[in-house]
């Protein structure tokens, strides 16, 4: 009886340890996801902002039309970039894609046309 109780306690301890480890792993996974999402969103918003700045070079007199066209591009681009940035796991290709898009937009904005 005593032996069995010892065994039970041991099993319960192992199980609770396992549960705790699992919980901690889950929390870490969620934190990693939140961090990645925040990073991807920041990159995407920066890209969107740079795209909006680029619209100033469009050959239209109407300022509103230029920003509206920029808005159309952003509304299509930003969700795709966020999804790709968050989903692209292998070799972090999603994050690389976001970085690439951001760098391309930054270069186009900085370089004289």
């Amino acid at each position: 009886m005593r032996m069995s109780r010892t065994i039970e306690t041991g099993l319960a301890g192992a199980s609770s340890l396992h549960a705790n480890t699992k919980k901690r792993q889950k929390q870490q996974a969620v934190l990693r996801r939140c961090g990645l999402l925040a990073l991807v969103c920041a990159l995407c918003f920066l890209t969107a902002h740079l795209v909006m700045l680029l619209t100033r070079h469009l050959p239209f007199e109407d300022v509103r039309l230029r920003t509206d066209l920029g808005g159309m591009v952003i509304a299509a681009l930003l969700p795709c970039l966020v999804l790709a940035g968050f989903a692209g796991l292998r070799y972090r290709w999603g994050l690389m894609l976001c970085l690439g898009a951001c760098a391309a937009a930054a270069l186009t904005t900085a370089l004289p046309l």
């Binding site: 918003f45 909006m52 619209t55 509103r64 920003t67 952003i74 509304a75």
Partner: peptide, 27 residues
């Protein structure tokens, strides 16, 4: 969803630089 976002996207992300620049004077 797309058209609604595109119509007002310029309000969320304005076409003015967040970083001050001397060569881009605003009208």
């Amino acid at each position: 969803g797309y058209t609604g976002t595109a119509i007002h996207a310029r309000l969320l992300i304005p076409a003015q630089s967040f970083f001050p620049s001397h060569n881009t004077a605003l009208p």
